[in-house]
Design a binder for these strands. Sequence first.
RNA 1: GCCUCCGUAGCUCAGUGGAUAGAGCACCGGACUUCUAAUCCGAUGGUCGCAGGUUCGAAUCCUGCCGGGGGCGCCA
Length: 574
Amino acid sequence: MDFVETLLTDRLRSAVATVLGPGHAARDLQVRSATRPEFGHYQTSLPLRLAGPVADSPRRIAERLVERLDVEDVCLPPAVQGAGFINFTLRPDFLARRVNEILRDAALCVPRGEPQRVVVDFSSPNVAKQMHVGHLRSTVLGDVLARVLAFVGHDVVRQNHLGDWGTQFGMLIEDLLEEGHDGADLDLAGLDAAYRSARTRFEADAGFAVRARARVVLLQGGDRGTLAVWRRLVATSLTAFDEVYVRLGVELDEHDVAGESRYNADLPRVVDDLLAAGLLTESAGALCAFLPGFTTRDGSPLPLLVRKADGGFGYDATDLAALRYRVEELRADRLVYVVDVRQSLHFEQVFALARAAGWLPERVATDHVAFGTVLGEDGKPFKTRTGATVPLVSLLDAAQERATALLDDRGSTLQGAAREETARAVGVGAVRYGDLVNGLGRDYVFALDRMVAMDGNTGPYLQYAHARSVSLLARAGGSGDVVTLLREPAERRLAFAVTGFPGAVAAVAETLQPHRLCAHLHQVATALSSFYEACPVLSAEAEVRASRLALCRAAQRVLAVGLELLGIRALERM
RNA sequence: GCCUCCGUAGCUCAGUGGAUAGAGCACCGGACUUCUAAUCCGAUGGUCGCAGGUUCGAAUCCUGCCGGGGGCGCCA
């Protein structure tokens, strides 16, 4: 099924070719959603742009085009309005047909593109540290993008690029051993605390610093005892991360883990190959790649530090190795990195060097999904009053607590386990939606009160709209499969909203901007609520009743699948 | 200093070179013997940071300025 825009564009294109010649039909005809309801469903300003080239008035051109426009099966006679706009209003029977097609299709008519293997890098917490609010965006955005890309037919490979390697582990392991721990006797919160105290000790105690550095050498050299402790740290961390993922509804498990340590053995090869390619320069003892177009603060060339002066490797080298693995071993056609916007320059450099080295062929696309920082109410990066990071679980606890209060406040009849389960889904859904609804790139303020609110563009609002539609359909008892009548404006508005779903999902797959899907689902939910007010369903006369039920079912399906793509549970009762 | 992102309603934010710039919240006025009112209907609210430029047409593209965030060699 083509998008309606595509359909109208094709028809318009033949009219342009007939009336003005094929030369003019080649341009982008710009059929867009109407900016105002009185302009119908779609509009184009093409005649305004053709006025110059054709040497005629926009309105004349519009009238000539409309004369030859064959769209009878799709919309009412197109109107020439304003300075030379052509407005399209879809026919109710066409809208009904579209809704029915969506209703019949398991994938809701979301088009499947040319299948690609897409590697999505997201979440990437650090071993021995609790996941905190800073991991929320990468985890949730990445999860949604992976879901959406898979839904449109791509072969998605999730990669959790765990921070599981580096000098800090020497410090932590040395501290643990000196304090009599074996690495398995502490949970993640305990490890997190130990990490902080080890850090303090490292800075205050010169003797410890020396032993910590020696421990790094042991770890990197593969010392058995040291490695054993390290493995326990990783295992403990993964178990805790998994709990958070399950609770958040994130589709990410241990099979998706490919941490920094995995690329450890590849790092010398990365250096060798870059050296052989003549891409590295020695500078102050380090091996650097100086790429054209990158400069530092004083205007000198900005290096990518592939090997540090002490012989160690930084994350530049690790990211290069990971990129190479993803292209060569995972056979990626597209690499998506869901990582903080502050790493933009880093990724530009890594991609540029990989292209120069021939590790990133032209056919492989790269996307850095760069998102902004989560801020506290004070407008500064979200921290506790004492300046510590906020564990993700405590946020989810708070959200769930508020969701429970919300259910009680709204007189929910749910009790016991069902009540708790629902509160959990509402709380998590609120946090996820509150994150996803924001545009990428910019910072946003984490305001739990707004996220868990019943009003407005929130997760609970969408879940409620869904639950309500399920409830109505259940009462109706299964009748109503086909939309046949769309007489009321509220019915048409809802039908039109439903038909926008395939385009909204496709837009997210293309632009990697989940907030577009949020906006669309919110539109469907509000149209559904208005429809309830204006159009009685169960008490309506037989044919109207059946048609309205089908429309309702279509909206319910869109909300259910849409929420699923956002990783939010489409509840049946609230 | 250079690079980059941002500045849109009181607040939080959408916005693809097109018509009178949109949502949500808040505020104000209505609608509950319900299909779950967690809702709906309506009203108020704007020099799109400022100034130029390109264009038939600019929140959108270009330049400059003002204000803010972020980044800019051995942390990741």
